[in-house]
Computed example of a mutant assay.
Amino acid sequence: MVSSRPLAVSRINKEAFMKVILLLDSRGFGGIESHVMQLAFGLKAHRQAVEVWLLKDYGRHPLSNKLQQQGITMDHVNGGIRALYRKLATQTDAIVHSHGYKAGIASRLVCKILSIRCFSTFHAGERGRGKMAIYQWLDEHTAGLATSVFAVSQPIKLRLPANCELVNNFIHLPPWPMQLGHEVAFVGRLSDEKAPHRLLSMAQALPECHYAFYGDGPLLSHLRPAAPENVSFYGQQTNMEARWKNIQVLIICSRQEGLPMVAIEAMARGIIVIAFELGALANLIDDGINGWLVAGQNPADLTLKLHAWRQLSTPQQARMRQQARHKVAQTFSDSAVIPQLLRRYHAAF
């Protein structure tokens, strides 16, 4: 696990490389995109030149405005491995850091040929099916071609057939919210591996709460007709900033997870996370101290934790919310993680 010692800027050879290229294949905004955005912002804040490249141009991307506002270039490869080769051949003073399976496979092959340092972060805790499973196998079994490999949780690290280092997901700490929201929320893709129907079970078991879905996906058409009156659907969000203030409790009810960015983002704002004990969530959540963890996969146990939260006094709730933010600031913030990533980059030269 990376430490939180401050960056010794004077000891870094800034001539080793000129630019970090963050590479991914994406058309929407989710956990990986949030991670890449936070990494780009953090590198720029540490005076490291950085660009974000997309393998394909799917049209206007949710990241583009956010990056542009920070003066960070977003570019497109617009092709496969050959197009990436041609584009990277002009970037011999750069290093590449890939995120996601398509970008990982392509960048490691090309960077190996061009002798460009390549780093890959593995994010996905869930296992794919069909074509996705083939991509994941290729991604994992070409990981050894990278200069360095990072994983955001121990289970992900253990399944990779290459030397791998744990690295925390992270965010830039937002301002402390002036108010506490009222919603019990699910934030993410409405797909089978995220098991969003479990929030409906909670809504039926504890109807005095108001529940909210922020996200879209193939299960939306099944969830909406089955939802009781105390459930709202707000659709896909390209920017959660305006929504966080409405949320009091975040529910993570997935079948599998790595270290979800949404949990860190919520806790940094004093939002209590109630989650199944998956992936690296136990490194983030101290049960009963700064949130709640549930062993197993029974939604009824999530409801019991929600009830326990509601039974706390106002001072007890305030203390737990402060503890949640403190944990993020201490271990999962950009000031804790970015300096360590910079050291890993420079150690490759």
Rank of each mutant, 00 (worst) to 15 (best):
Met1Phe: 08
Met1Glu: 00
Met1Tyr: 04
Ser4Glu: 04
Leu7Met: 12
Ile12Phe: 11
Val20Phe: 10
Val20Ser: 05
Leu23Glu: 12
Leu24Trp: 07
Ser26Lys: 02
Gly30Trp: 12
Ile32Gln: 08
Ile32Cys: 04
Ser34Ala: 13
Gln38Thr: 07
Ala40Cys: 10
Leu43Ile: 13
His46Glu: 15
Arg47Tyr: 08
Ala49Cys: 14
Val50Ser: 09
Val50Phe: 09
Glu51Arg: 09
Val52Gln: 09
Val52Thr: 12
Trp53Pro: 03
Leu55His: 03
Lys56Ala: 10
Lys56Leu: 12
Asp57Lys: 09
Arg60Asp: 05
Pro62Arg: 04
Gln70His: 15
Asp75Asn: 13
Val77Gly: 09
Val77Gln: 08
Leu84Glu: 05
Lys87Asn: 01
Thr90Glu: 13
Gln91Gly: 00
Gln91Val: 03
Gln91His: 14
Thr92Trp: 07
Thr92Tyr: 07
Asp93Pro: 01
Ile95Trp: 08
His97Val: 08
Ser98Ala: 15
His99Thr: 06
Lys102Glu: 13
Ile105Gly: 04
Ser107Thr: 10
Cys111Gly: 02
Lys112Trp: 08
Lys112Pro: 02
Ile113Tyr: 01
Ile116Thr: 00
Cys118Asp: 05
Phe122Asp: 00
Ala124His: 04
Ala124Tyr: 03
Lys131Phe: 10
Met132Cys: 02
Tyr135Gly: 01
Asp139Glu: 11
Gly144Trp: 12
Ala146Gln: 04
Thr147Ile: 02
Ser148Tyr: 04
Ser148Gln: 13
Val149Met: 08
Pro155Ser: 01
Lys157Leu: 11
Leu160His: 03
Asn163His: 14
Glu165Asp: 07
Leu166Gln: 00
Asn168Lys: 09
Phe170Gly: 07
Trp176Met: 12
Gly181Val: 11
Glu183Cys: 08
Ala185Cys: 11
Phe186Asp: 00
Phe186Cys: 05
Leu190Ala: 10
Glu193Ser: 06
Pro196Tyr: 13
His197Lys: 08
Leu199Cys: 04
Met202Ala: 15
Glu208Ile: 12
Glu208Trp: 15
Asp216Val: 03
Leu219His: 06
Pro225Gly: 08
Pro225Ala: 05
Glu229Met: 14
Glu229Phe: 15
Asn230Phe: 15
Val231Asn: 02
Tyr234Gln: 03
Gln237Asp: 01
Asn239Trp: 02
Asn239Tyr: 07
Met240Ile: 04
Met240Trp: 07
Asn246Pro: 03
Gln248Phe: 15
Val249Ile: 15
Val249Arg: 14
Ile251Met: 15
Cys253Gly: 05
Glu257Lys: 03
Val262Lys: 09
Ala263Gln: 05
Ile264Gly: 06
Ala266Phe: 11
Met267Phe: 10
Ala268Leu: 06
Arg269Thr: 01
Ile271Gln: 11
Ile271Lys: 08
Val273Asp: 03
Phe276Val: 01
Glu277His: 12
Leu278Arg: 02
Gly279Gln: 07
Gly279His: 01
Asn283Ala: 06
Leu284Cys: 04
Leu284Phe: 14
Ile285Tyr: 07
Ile285Lys: 05
Ile285Gly: 00
Asp286Ile: 10
Gly288Trp: 08
Ile289Trp: 11
Asn290Thr: 06
Leu293His: 00
Leu293Ser: 03
Pro299Glu: 06
Ala300Phe: 14
Leu302Gln: 10
Thr303Gly: 15
Pro315Phe: 11
Ala318Met: 11
Arg319Pro: 00
Met320Leu: 11
Arg321Ala: 10
Arg321Thr: 10
Lys327Glu: 10
Ala329His: 09
Gln330Ala: 10
Val337Glu: 02
Pro339Met: 13
Gln340Asp: 01
Leu341Arg: 01
Phe349Cys: 05
